[in-house]
C-alpha cells in the first residue's frame, strides 16, 4: 500500500514537472507577453497542484502534509494574483496583444463601465 502510494505520488510529481516544463516551453516560444503570462500562470498553478498532491501522497498524514497544503494555498493565492496584476500593468502600459486589441477594452477606453 505504502509502496503504491509512493509510486503514485512520484508519478503525480513527475506529471507536475512535465506540466511545468510545457509551461516553460510556452513562455519561451509564445509570441507576446499575454500569451506567455497565460502559459506561465496556468502551468504554474496546475503543476504545483499535481506536484504537491503527489508529495502529500508520499508523506502520508503528518505536519509535513499540512505544510505542503500551506505551500499550495500560498501558490494558489499569489500566482494568479501576480499574473493578473502583470497582465493588467502590461495592458495599461500600452502593450497591444498579438491577436489585436479586443472589444471589452475598447469599450472601457470610451469611459464606460468596467
Amino acid at each position: 500500500m505504502a509502496d503504491a502510494l509512493f509510486w503514485a505520488g512520484g508519478g503525480l510529481a513527475a506529471a507536475g514537472a512535465l506540466l511545468a516544463l510545457i509551461g516553460a516551453l510556452g513562455v519561451l516560444r509564445f509570441p507576446d507577453v499575454y500569451t506567455r503570462i497565460h502559459a506561465a500562470s496556468i502551468t504554474d498553478t496546475g503543476g504545483a497542484t499535481l506536484m504537491i498532491l503527489g508529495l502529500c501522497l508520499i508523506s502520508g498524514l503528518s505536519l509535513v502534509t499540512l505544510k505542503l497544503v500551506l505551500v499550495w494555498v500560498f501558490i494558489m493565492l499569489t500566482s494568479p494574483a501576480a499574473a493578473n496584476a502583470l497582465a493588467n500593468a502590461a495592458y495599461s502600459a500600452g502593450h497591444t496583444p498579438w491577436i489585436g486589441s479586443f472589444r471589452i477594452m475598447q469599450d472601457n477606453r470610451k469611459g464606460g463601465s468596467r
Binding site: 513562455v27 506561465a40 500562470s41 504554474d44 504545483a48 506536484m51 508529495l55 505551500v71 501576480a82
Partner: peptide, 26 residues
C-alpha cells in the same frame, strides 16, 4: 523583449523554486 517578460519569468522561476525545494526536501 519587454520588462514584463522578465518579471513574468522571475515570478514563474520563483514558483518553480518553491516546488523544487519541496522536492529536494523529500
Amino acid at each position: 523583449p519587454s520588462h514584463y517578460d522578465r518579471i513574468l519569468a522571475a515570478n514563474s522561476f520563483g514558483t518553480k523554486t518553491v516546488l523544487l525545494l519541496a522536492i529536494i526536501g523529500f
